[in-house]
Structure formats: structure tokens, C-alpha cells
Amino acid sequence: MAPVAAAPAVVAAQQLSLKENLTLMATHESKLELVKSQAQMPGPGQALVHVRATGVCGSDVHFWKHAGLGPWKITDKTALGHESGGIVIAVGEGVVNVKPGDRVAIEPGVPCGKATCNFCLTGQYNLCPSVDFYSVPPADGTLRRYHLHPAGWLHKVPETMSYAEIALLEPLSVCLHATAQAQLRLGQPCLITGAGPIGVVQLMCANASGCSPIVITDLSQERLDFAKTVVPEVIPFKIDLSKTEQETAREIVATFTKACSGVGGTGLNGEVMPAVTMECTGVESSIATAGYATQPSGLVFVIGVGSSFLKNFPFMHFSTNEITLKFLFRYRDTWPRAIRLVSAGKIDVKKIVTAQFPLERAKEAVEHAADRTKFSVKTLIVDEE
């Protein structure tokens, strides 16, 4: 019965009057190109989405400037974008979970789903070695007007959710996965390193989890001030690069101790140290500082993406203090929770948006997000009807 139910939508798709399909692509020559094409109609199991909002991620900037990221290289051109939401305008044969007119979030990581894949079988689908992650070569991303996507990896959202909120479910999913893996708890002292978009969303998640006190660090006072407007209870700490990682860590611990007004702590002389540090930069010196600041038997959870190798990692400090170092890779099973949190007003992801550009100016939007001389937390690219 499924093919019969889907057939009218397939016919309707071929009668659509669509605009040019603008797509922002990064090239192997480290250039940005806004390419025009015609939208393709959905095949079996696919849906065609009019992408109404896309967030610019740091990885988009990295793919543009370096023609790759880690092991993934751009050999010709790759469409950017993986933080997207929109509205279904057509579906292919056999699609029953979404229909034209549905607002949807696009989960960009699509695993193989084969019975021979242990990671897919055990629910760890983000670790599937054959995953297609849209915007990671060779898979094109979602920073385009019309995007074809496997319908099973589209998540319906309430009509009350804005397209900006739908797009920002992706970075929220990263932080929800990190929050669950780190097991953040009520009353737990928490350090967050980095007040960029992931750091600020992680701050919202840690606050919602009941962590207290929370200290957030950054090099930029402007970003720290912004983080405090999002979560007024947070304690900002500005990093001074002229100081060593150990000196900075001692000052961070002093900040936690002062915030707790001398109550019994976890360090010497009643010091209060963070039980968990959510490391959102991937910067080597920041990871080292996190290790020195975190309490013995604590957790340093690295969310940020950095260099392929660490050259000056304080191994013995982590070892002799039994500090756990843990990482995450993207997310899994987070989208339904993210939708519930945002639609219920528990997490206001719109707060991180600091700039907005139309799709026709997508190249300018990515350049703006990459420009360190301009204040930017999350840049959004939108396409109207």
C-alpha cells in the first residue's frame, strides 16, 4: 500500500514550478562558488526539501579554507552545510513518514544500515564506517535551496517551530550527545572551555542539567559577555595567553572556590574544582588547562575538533590524577529529544544567532562567519518562499 499512497506526491513533484537551485560549494582550490542548477525530483525513499534555514558551522569554514578537514579532502567541489531545516515539497515512491507541507529537520549523517554493520546493529550508527554525512566529501551538503534526502532521516517538527530553530537542532544534537555521554548532573561543578556556538549551546545544556557553578572560558571578552546574556548565572573567565596552562588552571579553580563561598570542595584546603570539563575548542593548550583544572578522578570531555595530533599533552598529570579523557563523534538518537526541548521552550537555540543572510548572499555569510575581526557566534542563511 505504501507505493500507492506515495504516488500522488510523485506526480505532484513533476508539476512543481521551482526556482533555480542555488548551492554554495567549496572547491579544491579553497574558493567559494554559488552554483545554479535545476532541482532533481525524488526517487524511491527520498524527499525533496525546500531548505529554509542553514547554520554556518566551523567545519564549513575549514572545508572552504583548507579544501578538506582531517582525512576528508575536496577533490573538485563539495556543497557545504549540514545544519538545516525546511519544508517537504515532494516525496518519492514508498515514502510514508513525511509528506509535502511537513516542516522537517534534516539529520545529515545517514549510516549504511546493513545487517553486516555492527555499529548500525548496536545503535551506534554515528560510528558507522560507511556513513554518508552530507557536506563531507564525497557527499554534498544542504546549503542549497532544494535538497534531496533519504526520507527516513528527516524529522517532523511542530508547526510552531521557526526554521531558525529547526536548523539549530543540529548543534544542539552535538551538545545533547555530549551531555549524555558526560553524564552531567545536578549540583556538579562544570567548566566549559570556549564560548563559541558549541560552547554556548553546551552552556545551555549544562545549565538545564543543573550543573552549578558553571565557569566558561574564552579569549574574547565579547564572547564571554554574550554567553552571560544567554545564561546569566554563568561565571565568565578570560584566558590570558601570557600565562602557563598550570597558572590558568589555578586561577580557574580559585574562581570556582570563590563562587562556592568557601564550602567544602574537592581539592586541597577546601578548593572547589570542576568535576567535569566540557572542552569545546579542540585547542591543545585548552585541553591541557582543562586537565590541570579538573578534579582528580574527574572528566575532561572533548567536543571541539583540533589538530590530528597533540604534541604537548600532560600525560602524567592525567594518569596520576585518574582524570578521564573522553571524546564524541557527532551524535545519535538525539533529534527527537532536541525537538522536544526546543518546542517546549526548555532550550532557546535562537539566542545564539548573531547574523542572518539570504541564500543569494551565502558566500558573504560564510566569509562573515570566518572573519575574526567581526563578532559572530552563529551565522544563519535563510531562503524565503
Rank of each mutant, 00 (worst) to 15 (best):
V91D: 01
V98S: 02
Q124Y: 14
K114Y: 07
F133D: 01
Y125F: 15
Q124S: 13
R103P: 01
H82L: 09
G123T: 06
L121W: 00
P111F: 12
S135E: 03
K99W: 01
G109V: 07
E83G: 08
C112N: 10
V104S: 08
G109D: 03
Y125N: 06
N126G: 06
V104A: 06
I89M: 02
V98P: 02
K114Q: 13
T116G: 00
H82T: 11
P111T: 11
T122C: 12
V95M: 05
G113P: 08
C112E: 10
G86D: 07
A105F: 15
I106H: 03
C128R: 03
P108R: 04
G101S: 12
T122A: 12
D132I: 09
E107H: 02
V110Q: 03
P111W: 10
T122V: 12
G94C: 07
G109P: 03
V136I: 15
I87G: 00
P129W: 14
G123K: 06
G85F: 13
V91H: 03
S84Q: 03
G109M: 10
V95C: 02
R103H: 15
H82S: 11
C128F: 11
C117I: 13
G85P: 08
G81N: 05
G123Q: 07
I87T: 15
A105M: 12
G101E: 09
G101M: 12
Q124P: 00
V96W: 00
H82R: 08
T122L: 06
D102S: 01
S135R: 05
S130Y: 14
G86V: 10
D132S: 14
S130P: 00
Y134M: 14
I87C: 02
G86S: 08
I106G: 09
K99M: 08
S130W: 11
Y134V: 06
K99H: 09
I87L: 03
L121R: 14
K114S: 15
V110T: 13
F133Q: 01
C128H: 06
G85C: 07
V96F: 00
P129M: 10
E107T: 09
P108Q: 03
K99L: 12
V88K: 05
S135H: 12
V110E: 05
G123L: 04
V88N: 05
V88S: 06
G101W: 14
K99F: 07
G94D: 08
N97R: 07
A90V: 06
D102N: 15
G94Q: 05
P108M: 09
Y125C: 01
S84H: 03
C112W: 08
V91S: 14
E93R: 13
S130T: 11
S130D: 15
T116D: 04
E107F: 04
